[in-house]
Amino acid sequence: MPVKKRNSFLINPELDRAQILKDATRELALPTRRLFLKGAVTLGGLTMLTGCGLSDNQSVESFLMRVSRLNDRVQGWLFDPNRLAPTYSEAELTRPFPFNAFYGVEDVPEVDAASFVLKVGGLVTGKRSWTLPELYALPHAEQITRHICVEGWSAIGHWGGTPFREFLRQVGADTSAKYVGFKCADDYYESIDMPTALHAQTLLTFQYDGKTLPPEYGFPMKLRMPTKLGYKNPKHIMEIYVTNTFPGGYWSDQGYNWFGGS
């Protein structure tokens, strides 16, 4: 994200007033800014009342965003591609596994299985459209792992599908590329780093607890990564693409850390 440097005490107070109004109007138009400002009231409220806090507030925000990008790199460095997340037994499953999304369970998208085609794009050389029966025919793997939510709670679930690195191999993905991006039926979008995409436990899941993945858990498919926090695991995937251009993500564009590793 572009970082604009401003020095509030070099600005003429008269000019500053007009500038602040202009900035405020522009910034309030951006949903992420709005969310941040709404939230920053406890700390920034007092300084904002004085009329000179807005630029400070924005510089604090951009500083924190830059640290978050630095933390992406640190986590990429800490990530051990051979380190496996702990696995659990059937008896340890969390029942019922919690539904979680940025909307209520009544708004879960309905994807028609018969007409569904998964689109694959970007830096791949192989097959670019996949029907569900074709996907179901791929090598099968199961895992019982802990889903850790960014909010702090965790739940143990049982997923079945195909190892994602196997799928990437099948579609002839350029695995030297930086990112894999996802577009979802619920307008969610997400992207991950290539080392995590190639991790042994990263699973393109079509099943939950031995049955076809139900809509509330992400039908037709969810990418399950026990090495990442819950919001990094996209559901209702409609399109997968390989790219070197940073795609961002629904939550990370609003301030959650992009790497989101565990």
Binding site: G39, A40, V41, L43, M65, S68, Q254, N257
Partner: peptide
């Protein structure tokens, strides 16, 4: 501090 979870996480991890 932080206003919402995302903001608080940014403060915490800075």
């Amino acid at each position: 501090l932080g206003g919402w979870l995302g903001g608080a996480l940014q403060w915490h991890f800075a």
